[in-house]
Amino acid sequence: MNISRRHLLILLPAAAVAWKYVEAGTPEASPNYQMSEHWWGMLINIPKCIGCGNCVRACATENDVPDGNFRTWVERYHVTDTNLTTPEVISPDGGKEGFPVAQEDAGKYFFVPKMCNHCADSPCTQVCPVGATFISPDGVVLIDQTYCLGCGYCVQACPYGCRYLHPTKHVADKCTLCYHRITKGLTTACCEACPTGARQLADLKNPNDPIHEFLKTHPVQVLKPQMATGAKAYYYGLDGSVR
């Protein structure tokens, strides 16, 4: 093949543009992972939670969550006998180092781990003005932090308070359901670290996932169902006082 100087001069810029895309590459998820085969959610078993804070610490370690911000946190509810509307709720440092010892009294206590509900119809993704946050084809609400402007609309829109503005990156940040782990066949860091199995990753598209049997045989609830967010964090044993 003969290439004249003229042709070479025409080809070079085209090759330069092409090379830019070769260098950039296309990041691939795990080779054996098919997004279309999964629909992720979470099962949270409140009677099993002991408020140890393992999940909060594990999440912070795994995802470099800055101090004072939380992708997951644990709240302790104290409900007196007759008063469901104004429970006493504490979450010291997100429950990261556990909770103060509670004394027996007339009320009841329980722990509520909270995290992104990975809503199928999430308000947070709908308000993003630039398309930086979205629900992935496998049902995980994610943020493209290279695209996020840090306007904070999504932080306001989340009815569950699951988002925050990263103090040094100045972009929105939230639970990714450990997307870098679940696409490799691992469970999330919070589930891995939970000593009592109070949190279980659930693949709602996998017919063999024990979540289906659990949902069939147990009463479960999502947070703020009246918001019609399509929340996929299913709570077992959720008390009416939890908001």
Binding site: A29, M35, T133, L142, Y179, L186
Partner: peptide
Amino acid sequence: HYRGAAIGEIAQHPVKF
């Protein structure tokens, strides 16, 4: 309405546990 490659980039974060 988002950058499809972002999914792969997020999936590439390093695993610690």
